[in-house]
Amino acid sequence: MKFLTTFLKDLKLSFRTFYIYIEIALAVIFILVMLFVLPENFTTEHDIYTLIELEEPAYSSVRTLFDEGAEADRLIYLDSREAIENALLEDREAAGIHVFQSAEGRITYDFVLQGYESPKLVELLKQTFIGDLTTYMPDYEDQVSITTLGGAREKLSDRLTVLPVFLVLNSAFTGLFIVAAYIFMDKDEGTIKALTVTPAKISDYLLAKLGMMLVMGMLTSLLVTVAIARGSAHYGPLMIFMAAANLFGTAIGLLLTSFYDDLMKAMSSIFVVVFVLAFSTISYFMPSFSPLIIRMIPTYPMLVSIRELLYQQPNLTYVYATAGGLLAGAALIFMLALYRFKKTLTV
């Protein structure tokens, strides 16, 4: 009951400060940029500069092969090897293909790369090409089968792929960023001292803050998801998950706050923590680079779980297991924060 009163009072006050409107404004800006400024898929695949130096009829058959291939719209035809190398100098992420007749009279595919590619990637490219070629041979033996454990997944648009990053770094971590500011404001204004002579306990005070951040986080996450994902998100599990993630973020914010006696000092360590937590986005966008150390950062399973909930058939067991882990973590961190605040909050 005391918790509820404190929570409602905090919530009412938070609507009087402008911070909650900043959160909403940020969410609206994100929605506007995603929906009206950028197209649904805004990243482009890099060009492949191509040169076919062959006599007829070999030229036409290779050209037809290229034009009917999956990468046809990325191919840009040039008229000399030098032109390919110059184009690669201009675009450091592009690659080239040079097809020519070798001294022995054999058709040779030369894949022209930049030079920073790893030896394994170079070998992978070569073997993929050879493998592709074997499938056209009369004596080719198809001895490889593929089994899919989960349901086949549709490809998410760039817009939907970016959504989990916003939901984690902004909505789930609303409290991590700002709960310190609210607590120090209460300290400066003497609210905390006043609280000590009321029957409310410190745990009520901290739980009310947790609740206030939860409302802000849920509000922005719902707003952004409805606008961007529309019908393709699984809203029930998503809201449960976002609640767990938000409580986890705010609990970390409370714990960090408990170690400092002014906001600016607390902010520096909050920035460092957010910086570390944001590292997992590298692996999220680059799945081939996902070392254990990055997968152990809590934001990694958060991003993966939210992405799951945007697929038609999500792996709910994984999502709920992650949510359970976050809730357990939030409870533990909250207890630690409470222990520390009991000693320091009124000082």
């Binding site: 190398e85 690669l88 100098l89 070798s102 054999r106 058709i107 040779t108 595919y109 030369d110 894949f111 022209v112 790369l113 930049q114 030079g115 590619e117 170079v122 992978l124 490219l125 070569k126 073997q127 993929t128 090409f129 050879i130 493998g131 592709d132 070629l133 074997t134 499938t135 041979m137 004596d139 080719y140 033996e141 198809d142 001895q143 490889v144």
Partner: peptide
């Protein structure tokens, strides 16, 4: 890549090489 391994004894009509700038 596995096709390339399984069928490594096949005689291919083309060669592949990788170069860089």
């Amino acid at each position: 890549v596995l096709d390339a391994y399984v069928n490594q004894d096949l005689e291919l009509p083309m060669d592949a090489l990788v170069s860089d700038i």
